[in-house]
Design a protein around this nucleic acid. Structure first.
Lengths: 195, 195
DNA sequence: CGCGAAACGGACCATCAGTCCGCTACAGTG
DNA sequence: CACTGTAGCGGACTGATGGTCCGTTTCGCG
């Protein structure tokens, strides 16, 4: 890749990141805005990223690395329910941090949430955990359901909830689904969501 | 309401319904298309419904009546898990029948799914059932999670699943969440989804 | 029948994703 | 360093679409 191209790519991603963070709604940020903020022409932007979705995906890829790091850094271990809970917890945290970006990605109209980001990856992981915990029956659907419970617009809808409430909800749900544990507070290794 | 106004309103709703059913993607159907198909001017359409969302909501209100009928017709009864399962089952059936419309409604970009349709209503109902089954702790979140598990785009994503697979998934999830029942097939009163 | 108001319709506007093409400047070569 | 082919640039342009405006039509009441 030519030097100016690389420089522009970086500038665009930085500008977009900034604009999306500042916005309260994904489509407050137009492609023209991004081009202008990055100090490049619109053509540059589209040649590099193909279309709006492409740009969003590139942005996501960057930020997603942080998430992937957080997920693999603290090595899972422990019973499957705790590992699943850990995953969901990090996903929620990520989506709270990248509000507008994840909203944009999950609402793009086509079958976005499922073709985008690392949905497939997480789903596979959760299917394995569910299977380990309670057998293969409906594991596929249960994994989808768990991921649906951390959909970005639900996170957004409940944005006023304090960490503790999220933690309680996630823990209760995860343990119920994986362990069949109906007790509200199966005082696991969880504790309040770390922040 | 003046006679011509009423007539046009009906025509618009009918045309829109037809177009959305025929489409495979919500935004294949433009407001101009609807106006043209209904044989009215665009102004009429916007004066009556305010904006695109308003029209969608009106459409939904019509179809939603069928769903509400189905839900109140077969009086619940039985343990809370079975009642919740019944609700979710009907919601899925509804969303499969009204694919494009519900997709449009739940993806409108603002906090749609939650301000739209009868989400609030269903949520309240589910909170009550969850509370009855396992107490109030996190009942709020669990109800959201159950509704997230029947999100229209998930239904769309899994559109190839046969009824039986959906039924198994819903039953397993619902019973796990409400009863803390980890056994895959708690052979309840459920049976395959009726069609 | 006559009239005021409600309703109509389609031209019009603003916005935005995405395209096009003449111009620029990077980087390899002699 | 000068030369040159080409990757890359940028911003004017297009097409589509949601939404507005206002002159004209139609309803329905007295």
């Amino acid at each position: 890749m030519r030097a100016d191209a690389a420089r522009n790519r970086t500038a665009v991603l930085a500008a977009a990141d900034r604009l999306f963070d500042a916005a309260t709604d994904p489509d407050q940020v137009s492609m023209d805005d991004i081009a202008a903020a990055a100090g490049v022409g619109k053509g540059t932007l589209f040649r590099r990223f193909g279309d709006r979705m492409g740009l969003l995906r590139a942005l996501y890829a960057q930020r997603g690395d942080q998430l992937r790091a957080a997920l693999t850094a603290a090595p899972p271990g422990g019973p499957p329910a705790e590992r699943a809970l850990h995953l969901l917890r990090e996903v929620v945290r990520f989506k709270r941090d990248s509000r507008v970006l994840t909203l944009a990605l999950e609402n793009a109209g086509d079958g976005s949430p499922y073709r985008t980001g690392s949905y497939e990856e997480w789903h596979v992981l959760l299917v394995a955990l569910v299977t380990e915990a309670r057998g293969p029956a409906s594991a596929d659907y249960l994994a989808h359901a768990l991921l649906a419970a951390v959909r970005s617009d639900l996170v957004e809808h409940l944005r006023d909830w304090p960490d503790a409430r999220w933690e309680a909800g996630l823990a209760t749900l995860t343990r119920a689904v994986l362990d069949g544990d109906a007790s509200p507070a199966a005082a696991g290794a969880g504790g309040p969501v770390r922040h």
